[in-house]
Every structure is written in structure tokens, then in C-alpha cells.
Nucleic acid binder design. Structure first.
Lengths: 217, 217, 217, 217
DNA sequence: AATGCTCCAGCTGAGC
DNA sequence: GCTCAGCTGGAGCATT
């Protein structure tokens, strides 16, 4: 249709314009569909902003996701802005000095050491490791089972630093049954307005003395 | 300067144009300065993308930051995309059903319960709480001391779920002495290219069976 | 497919994500097609930037297009930036004072008077070419003098194609005295709404048989 | 202030963040000032959208402005979208075939020939107004016929201000036969680079004494 | 007044 | 290395 052999430039121009307008129509239509989908999700109780973040992250590989989260956490931690959240394990891995020199390339270092706590980080001393070491996949199923059994998210038995902890969390979240079909509040934003002049400024509790003030010299 | 009393509309137009051009000049200049600052930071080894995220987050209150991170983590967990990171504590708080009904408004619920593990979430059973309960601020100082003493980030003694764990992390990160003045690799991106066809797709270890495939019906 | 009756919130989230990803795919695809079409047009020798402008203008009604061009020309003329182009006729119509008071609404005034040159602008004293050829700078001063003498913008004596015509226009616009200090209507937009279903679609009068319809094969 | 010699990376990070936040503040402030200036202009009766266009055009050299306007007019004419405006003279110059081959570079061709009507376009047979008033549609067909007969764009017989002039132009452009099937140069941009420090700044010829200088008080 | 939409400038990633 | 086009975020406008 938009192929032109020995046509005059006028016909070519018209043809291009028509092509472009037709395609532009389709583009607008696609954009509208997207917009409506977000609207439906919003009506259904999900937070559009978070959904956008999720979509963007889904375009990355797991490794890239982890790296990004780790970097952000490291920078925030250094500035005292973790607001009460512990560092993700990937961040710990990056911060652990011994492994730095030789981990300059990605592949050699296993992104996470599921097993063999002896030689590297996971759970140094206090964290009594589960007597029998388990695979994260197994932990995930345990999490799913726990969710179905009505357990709480706090009942995750794995200690910080153990990959099974994350796996259990994921399983719990994925299988979690909400009572009925209402969307739990956990999925929705509570703060809508930036409270102008704070009041929850106190924040982390951990931040005492750590956070850098805006106007600090 | 750009005030006009009984001036002709021509003079007013000229005046407006001149004002706008002058201000536009200043705006461009400011934008350039910003750009250069990012460039300097990049040359210094910091990741510009992460810095941008940090700047954006710094415009929020700690409470808003925590909420955002929690929401994202919850959505990601449900989709099996945590990639090996455990849920942040704020997410756990939101997911814990008992507190849902009555925490519909922000203020009544203390954003995080540093103390009194008896009545709510923190570390239900396994997590043997440090015998003497400490304040996060104290834990932060411990973290700083640990960093100066050359301890590793894995030496954080507090268990998952304890706010002191985060506080210790922050202290450690803030005081951490790099050997010399080089920027540790932890602060820099390693993956530059989306490897097209993966290879680190395996990802989380926890994701087995959890992640939703792109084309899944 | 993406309809959910009494489904769990987990299924709903997954469903929303899948919808969004599918639609996002379509959106990207549409954007790519558009991009390629522009590329083809460029390879064919057309200027992409101009094509974009044309596409944008084609989304307006002829009346809106004319208004926009007239406003721009008027502002530019007043700033001496016509660069040798004469004012478009629509701009002259706007600048002609007698019709200002009663043309506050668009429809009453026929966008352009094709016929009956007796009562309004077209071709005043049919362009006796100045016997002595003048420099544009001189013509500009004549325009300024004419404006101060209360002449109308239609009194420009120079014929089409003569650079002096543009120069006279610029001079007239720059010196023009509005009665008092109010801003003439010529400087403000009249159409706010795209009248949805036209009515001024008829447009140019010249377009008869010329304009390409949106859906034309 | 933001210079760091042998400082720790932590201090450097903090320093960068502070720099960036300070500069960001300034940037926001500049943007706000700009916004307010537009607001004032709007309150004063000027059209913000048009002002933006004017500001953008003022960043171009007169030659670039003319080229852009000419290109847009040519494309629009060919699509029958001139909406009653005649082609600007620069567009005529570009469309006039004899000068095409040797005007491939900008400078040799004087942007506009103010004097000496003998050798080039201006005012061919000085516009004897058609004795019988015609409809634009008819004029359009005349233009088409003229184009097919090999007439030049300058042969448009209608005077400035006559809607038929625009109609004739449109007809001519739409039917114009390029020699063979190559795209005439008139459709392509000639200036690619903003010549940094001008030289075609002289511009309009009409602008003498009219254009407002950037830094004028 | 608050929301949603549209537009635009600024930034990021390719391409020469 | 620089330029360029596409894209995202933010601002303005119109609306309810």
C-alpha cells in the first residue's frame, strides 16, 4: 500500500502522510488501552504507581533487579535513609570486603550462595542455622503451606541472611489467601498527601544522628 | 523592571519577551550546572542513576519512603520477583493481618514498634531477642564502632525483624572506612548491558516455581 | 480473559500485570511502526521534523490552524522577526480594528470574505506598484508612519512578493497604537475548544477538492 | 566547597548529594521564576502558547526561521492545508525551479532579492487584478493547470489579500510535476548546523532597526 | 478544588 | 565522542 514505484513526489508525500496518520491512530489507541488498564487496576484497589515500577522492573533480568536494589540500599544506608529497613542481602554481598577484589566480573561470583555457610557470609554467628540445610525452593513451599495454614508473615523461621528467608516470604505472599476477595489494605497507599510540614519526620528510629540534613554544610 | 504602568501593549510585549529570555537563560544555566554535578559524581565513581533515585527519595518523608518501599516489595513478592531479598519489615507490618483493621489511618499505628515485642510482630518465636533490649540509636553506634573495628557487614548481631538490625546496618555503612580513598566496587554498577539472551536468568533461587512468565495465559 | 469475578486478590494482581504487559507490548509495537514509517519517509527525502509539524496541524480544524498561524505572525511582526515574510491574511483580519468589537465570537465573522471586496479588506487600491523601488528599511518606516497616522493594516501599498510588503507590515505592527492601553483582541486566542464536530470545517475555500481526507485510500 | 582531596568515599558521597540538592534547588527556583513570568504575561493578555513558540524561534537565526516556515508552508500547500494563506516568499524561492540546481548551498543565493526585479521573481506582471472575481476553487484549478503547463510559482496572478492567491498556490503545489520522480530540493532542509556564530544574521532586510536584540535593556 | 489529560522540555540510549 | 531521536517526568490547561 505504501509502496511506490515511479510515483510523483506528491503522491509519495500523500502516501507517507496517510501511513503516518494511520499508524498514529493505532499508537493513540494502544496508549488509550494501556491507560484504561491502569484505570481498571486502580479501581480494583491496586496502586498504579507501584504497578508502573513493577512493570519497569519486569523488563530487567533478576540479576539487574538485584543490583539496582542493592545499589539503592547502599547509597541510602550511607545517608541514613534506610528508615528502619535492613540491608538486602545482595547489598551485604557487595559490601563484604573480602569478596570485592575477585568479584569484579559478574559470573565468577555466584550471585547468592544458597549453600555452604562455612566459607562465606550467610548468618555469621548468632543465627542458629536450621539444623538441616534446605533449598530455597523447599522453603518457598513451606511459605506457601504456612500461608494456607493461616500463619503470619512473621512466622518465617529462617534467619536474616538465609536465602530461604526470602523464598519463604515469596511463597507466603503468593499463596496467601485473603479472607474473601477484598483487597487487603497492605496493597494500597495510605499516605496520599505530602504532609507539608512533617510530623512523621522522626522516621526510622535508626536514623538518630545519621541522616544528613538538607542544609548541612 | 518589568513593571508597566500606562505603557503600550507593544512595550509590554517586548518587556515580557525580554524577561522570559533572561529567565530562560538562567534556567538553562542552572540545568547545565546540575548536569555537570552529575558528571562529576559519575567521574568520581558513583552511579548517576542511583543518585537520581536517592535525590527523589530525599524529597519524601521517611514515612512515605517506607510506604513506597513496602508496597513495591509486597507486589514484587507476590509475583515472585524478590530475587532473593527478604521482605522489608515495613512490608511485614503491612501484611500482618491482625493489625490491618485498625490501622487504616496512619498516625494511630506507630510506624514501627521498636520496643515491646510482646504484643505485636517483631520476631515471634525463633529470633531469640537480644537479652537486653536496646534502642536502635545505640545499635547504630555499635554498627559504627564495628565498621571502625574492621568488622564485616555480616557481623550484624541483630536478628531479622529487629529494628536494631537496620540501625546497625546504617551505622556500619556510614562509618565504614574504605581502604584508602578509592571508591569500593559496591558503589558501582557491574552489569551494563541487558545480556539480551540471559544466562543469569536463573535468578533468585527462591523463584523456582514462583515467577510469572511473560506469556503465561 | 481479564475479567475476574470472585477471584483472589493474588489472581487479580497477576491478571492485571499480564494485561498491562500485553498492552505495553502492543504499545511498543505501535511506537516502533511509527518510528519506521518516519524512517522510510526520511529515506524518501522528506524532512521528518516538518512532517511531525504537519501531523500535529492536521489534528486541528482549519480555523484553529489559521488562528495559530495568525497569532504567531502577529507576535513575530511586532518583534521584527517576520524575516521577510508578509503577514498572512488571517493576521490582517485580526488586526483590522473595525471588525474587532463585534467579532468576539468566532462564527459570526466569516473566516474570510471571498467575495464582495467592496466592504472589507481584499485588495484595497489594487496595488499600484511603487514607481520608485524602495529599500525595505524605508518601507518599514512608512509602515510605522502609517500606523501612527491611524491607517489600517490593509493599506500596505506593496504587492505580494515585494520584500517591502513584509517590512511595511513589521513597521506597522511595531508602532501601532492601541486605543488607550488595552491589549487588542488580535493578541488573544478566541477558539478554546476544538468544536468536536466541526462546522468551521469548510475552512479555506481554497481547499475545495484539495485537502486530503483522513481516511482516504 | 565540593572539592575533595583525600577524603573518604562517604564524605564524597555526602558532598555530591549536597551539591546536587543545592543545585536542584536553584534549578527549581529558576523554573518557578520562568513559570511566574509566563503567568504574568498571560494575565497581561498575551497567549502563553504563542509566546513559547516565539521564544523557541528566537533561538534560531533568521535564515533558519525562514527555512522552517518555508518547508512547513510547502508541505501544507501540497496537502491543501494552507487554509487561505498564501505561500511565504521564501517558499516561492525554494519552489522556483531555475534556481534550484545552483542553489544547493545557502550563501550563494541571496535570501531575498530586495532590488532589481528584472532578473528574478518579484511581481511579474504587476498583478492586474482579475477583472471578473473568481471563486477560490476556480483559482485552485487554474493553479493546477499552470503547474501542468510548466508555469512558475511566481506566475500566480492574484494579488496579496485575495483568497484566490492562496488557492492558486495550493493547486500549483499539488499538481506540480517534478522532472522525473526525484524529490525536489525544496522539500529538504539545507541548513543542518546552527552556524554557531552567524553570518546570515542580517536576515530580513525588513528588520533594520526593528528586531529586538537579546540583551537589550 | 481536585482530577485527568496533553503538551513540552529534559534526560537516556543508540548510531555514526 | 558527539549528535540525534524516543521516551519519561513534570507542568499547564481544561474539566467536574
Amino acid at each position: 500500500m505504501s509502496e511506490f514505484g515511479a510515483t510523483s513526489h506528491h503522491e509519495r508525500l500523500v502516501s507517507h502522510i496517510q501511513d503516518l496518520e494511520r499508524l498514529d491512530e493505532l499508537k493513540s489507541l494502544a496508549a488509550d488501552n494501556m491507560k484504561e488498564a491502569f484505570q481498571r487496576a486502580k479501581v480494583d484497589g491496586f496502586d498504579p504507581q507501584t504497578l508502573r515500577v513493577v512493570l519497569r522492573l519486569r523488563k530487567l533480568t533478576p540479576g539487574q533487579r538485584r543490583e539496582r536494589r542493592a545499589l539503592e540500599a547502599i547509597y541510602l544506608a550511607e545517608l541514613g535513609m534506610l528508615d528502619g529497613d535492613a540491608l538486602p542481602d545482595e547489598a551485604r554481598r557487595r559490601l563484604d570486603p573480602p569478596s570485592e577484589p575477585d568479584r569484579s566480573t559478574e559470573p565468577p561470583a555466584e550471585p547468592h550462595q544458597p549453600r555452604d555457610p562455612a566459607l562465606t557470609p550467610p548468618a555469621p554467628k548468632p543465627a542458629q542455622p536450621p539444623l538441616v540445610l534446605k533449598e530455597p525452593a523447599e522453603a518457598r513451599q513451606e511459605g506457601e503451606a504456612a500461608a494456607e495454614a493461616g500463619k503470619r508473615i512473621y512466622d518465617n523461621p529462617y534467619p536474616a541472611g538465609d536465602p530461604c528467608r526470602a523464598a519463604w516470604d515469596e511463597g507466603w505472599c503468593a499463596k496467601r489467601q485473603s479472607n474473601g476477595m477484598d483487597l487487603p489494605e497492605a496493597y494500597q497507599r495510605r499516605t496520599t498527601k505530602p504532609p507539608e510540614k512533617d510530623g512523621d519526620q522522626k522516621g526510622t528510629g535508626a536514623g538518630s544522628g545519621g541522616a544528613i540534613e538538607k542544609g548541612a554544610a
